[in-house]
Design a binder for these strands. Structure first.
Lengths: 204, 204
DNA sequence: GCCGTTATAGCACGGGCGGGCTAAATTCGT
DNA sequence: ACGAATTTAGCCCGCCCGTGCTATAACGGC
């Protein structure tokens, strides 16, 4: 009957165009026209896959969240698989490092994360996604701290709720600096600070 | 000769309108029309004091920076005045707390700080101001750490550059959470985390 | 009371925006 | 080969934007 096209693949391709435009010119310039140009499509074509502009933004944000989650999950599994392994410390380190913009790909993701979550402050339709992302990160960090408490490493009397807040703020803050002041922080700096923090948690 | 008006006061009044609009609807909605409405003026009147929209934004950002600096400076002076005072620790705490959105006024400032610095990522004319603000904060934190090292409190072998990065990231991250997820963090939480961090610095 | 200066207001243009809607091209099942 | 269903493309409207420009109002020195 009709031309057969995988609609989900198309939607993801358009979302990629959103990401490139937002990365380059800011989310405020991710208009249907600019996104369509970036994707090499006509505006009408983009609108065939997304009923409205905000639906496009919502899809893009979900797609971004999904990618981050996939990446983080891939670091959680080794940790669950090696319950008492000797190099548990470095697995934890790598898991948390997954949330830092240590290479170009993660840097781009961090830029987009900041753009979407700040936009969500005044765009009600994006709020649920932003909240989910934040909650997910915080719960993961809390689990890591509790896990490290059970499996040695971190002291028994660790104030887990406060330390969760502290570690989440630290990771967010490092990402923020890397996004907004990229010349003033290097991946090495971020590694150094992360290791410093984990060491201080163990030795407290 | 003409109607006498303090032009600087007017400019500040318009900047205030920018702040209110940006706080409520986001910086992307701080158009000349919206700002003029908020200030109770006509667009032409606003343009009498600002040659262009970006000049208005630039002025507003300088005004914001100035206010933060005034507030911080007022906390630095007591610290310099009491070189070896006994409650130096609490003075340091209060100084750093000045950078956290602990009350409504500072919360609004933090919202605006985030809006302007993120906007600066893709608006070259705002970059210098954003860089200044970041540099000023980092230098201040570094001085605090070095000062605490000389005057007891912090250990001699403190890795000051790394600890500066860590503390700046922590403060930024707490402010970010407070701005984007205000329901998930209270002023008490921020106090607790700040004190926890300073204690861990002293006891390392 | 008049004049010159400044403040205030507003119109108009060109451009980008989201979105309602229609028309054309494409392609698979028959 | 034909036709139905889907994809692609594009026009057009009303809205908001920054800005160039002009007209009116307000007021202090003479």
């Amino acid at each position: 009957m009709p031309k057969i096209v995988d609609p989900e693949a198309r939607r993801r391709a358009v979302a990629d165009a959103v990401f490139r435009v937002a990365r380059r010119d800011g989310l405020e310039n991710a208009s249907l026209r600019n996104v369509a140009d970036e994707a090499g499509l006509a505006v009408g074509s983009v609108r065939h896959y997304f009923a409205s502009h905000s639906e496009l933004m919502l899809f893009a944000m979900r797609e971004l969240t999904r990618r981050v989650e996939v990446r983080v999950r891939s670091r959680v599994e080794p940790l669950l698989a090696a319950p008492g392994g000797p190099d548990r410390a470095s697995l934890v380190e790598e898991l948390l490092a997954e949330l830092l913009p240590l290479d170009a790909a993660r840097h781009d993701e961090a830029v987009l994360w900041l753009a979407f979550t700040t936009a969500a402050r005044v765009r009600p339709e994006l709020r649920p996604r932003a909240d989910e992302l934040h909650t997910g990160m915080r719960e993961m960090v809390e689990q890591v701290l509790r896990g490290g408490q059970r499996q040695g490493g971190f002291p028994e009397d660790l104030d887990v709720p406060a330390e969760t807040l502290r570690l989440v703020a630290l990771l967010d803050g490092l990402a923020l600096t890397a996004v907004l002041q990229p010349d003033r922080i290097t991946p090495d700096d971020m590694w150094r600070v992360l290791r410093l923090h984990l060491r201080s948690l163990r030795g407290a």
